[in-house]
Design a binder for these strands. Sequence first.
DNA 1: TTGTAGGCGTTATCAA
DNA 2: TTGATAACGCCTACAA
Lengths: 328, 328
Amino acid sequence: MAAATGHVVSTVSNALAGKRHVNEETRRQVLEAAERLGYRPSGVARSLRLRLSSTVGVLVPDVSNPAIPEFLRGIDDVAVREGYTILLCNTDEVLERQVSQMQTLLDRRVDGMVLISQHCDAPEVRKILDGETPFVLIQRRSARFRDDYVGSDNLQGMRDSVSYLAGLGHRRIALVTGPVSSSTATERMEAFEGAVQELGCARDPQLIFRGDYTVQSGYEAMHYFGAMDERPTAVIASNDVCALGVQDAASELGLSIPRDLSLLGCDDIDLSRLRRIDLSTLHLPKREMGATAMQLLLRRIQSNRPPTAREVIIPTELVLRGSCASIA
Amino acid sequence: MAAATGHVVSTVSNALAGKRHVNEETRRQVLEAAERLGYRPSGVARSLRLRLSSTVGVLVPDVSNPAIPEFLRGIDDVAVREGYTILLCNTDEVLERQVSQMQTLLDRRVDGMVLISQHCDAPEVRKILDGETPFVLIQRRSARFRDDYVGSDNLQGMRDSVSYLAGLGHRRIALVTGPVSSSTATERMEAFEGAVQELGCARDPQLIFRGDYTVQSGYEAMHYFGAMDERPTAVIASNDVCALGVQDAASELGLSIPRDLSLLGCDDIDLSRLRRIDLSTLHLPKREMGATAMQLLLRRIQSNRPPTAREVIIPTELVLRGSCASIA
DNA sequence: TTGTAGGCGTTATCAA
DNA sequence: TTGATAACGCCTACAA
């Protein structure tokens, strides 16, 4: 490229980047030549030189789980605005996969990472997190460390949920929880247990089913609940996707929602507001949360001294639709 | 790193990469030092040297549209297996955004690009496509050029759909089509028109509503159809997401599916099989299609002489669920 | 305002 | 089998 213009590389570089002053005429020539040749500076070379890749890795359990893309979209919104590109990695909740993906991201010298509901306490993971590369956690935080984190207010949310159902007269309320490794799942479960006790509802461990945030697990949960001698009159699912499975099994069992069973979700995925689904749920502004996480990450990337960790807890809001009713 | 081991860089490189023979003892030392120092070769430097980034860009309209992530997952499956990482870009169907994202990908020297339902005939886009960087198209192909392409058999699929409905006695069948710029939408629409004529159904241009693959557009379409003097008795939606909107509006209008209205989708997104949705639709193996596209891309990336373009047309399969019934 | 030169961290080539 | 060296394409002192 330099050759083509008759100017030296540094002049070309400066003309293109507009960093230092170059003669207007020189500049014009360079720009013209670049245009004509379709020349564009190599981001790779720049990354090597600057030791900055303008790239962030995002780890997700599985993009095709409906709850995930909305976070992703929020992250992307601010990433694009700030000139970053996203490297996407699916981990399927499998620790080794997560570790190897993180390693790959590091090898590619990403400027930072966003971990959406990923393992963050496993020693292999922690070892990477303790390195130089900035990161932010979404919806799953460490039990032992304080990191940059964006998550929902699970305590308040679950309390609202239980007290809403209790207000409708329900006393046997079941919970389909998420995987043990998920702090959000754990927090929601603990809040559930607390609220159930406070509000004088049944405290039956059998009413808690361990799921894994999938439709399938909600489906299994409901079949399990349905087979109990004393069925729950209401079910809270730890996320909407899983609530969809509960709905499905309920139909199969001939249980009408909300007549025979009240159902409450968490997350408020886009589909929950469809009349066919019509799921009452805790709304979570996922796109905004993704954006917030990315902003936190950028703050850390761009600051010279590592800022102190910040945890952003987003309040949830109960969205009442048609899946709950007072007990007959 | 080289310094730490007392060996020269090239030896270190070779020990780590295992390319050429190094003394077993030397090798051990290098590996040990790397382990101890947590050293990992820079992918950026390697990319610069090799002029290969092991990175592919994927352009999508919007990740949070449920039809998209499944393709993405398929792409990722083979990408990971082959050591590639995905750079994700949302374009929102906006041409300038697509162009600027493609430019960014080029700047980052991606080894190739996958365009999921993107503009591919606009001159700005074509200019980039005509460059050196390999690419594959999914679900939207060029009207004028023959590129590597993976898409559904829209002709056969739409024929099956119409003839299924005609077999149920429907004669007034409506279509909610996709954006003009989408070849899949166009192909489906043309196939619809042909089939409708062949099978002796109403050929009323009013029965075709131009949507854009969103829930919202399906919703609007149904309200439009619902207000007609002579309502259609069946609706075919150009994709499932849009069918969801039709369902929603139908509920709102007090039309029961399938009693008052038969509804057929396209794509078969995961959610369509939920009992609450229960949408009859054309199944499309989206994850497999994504994988196929990525394989096509790799073939092009890895071959010395550009192979001739290949179009892979995937047959669709009508999945009968509960959204269609014979006419009363 | 422009030119020169060094280095970012690899790999490939060539010589030892 | 190993060592030295030259790119890859960019940015940035520093010198002119």
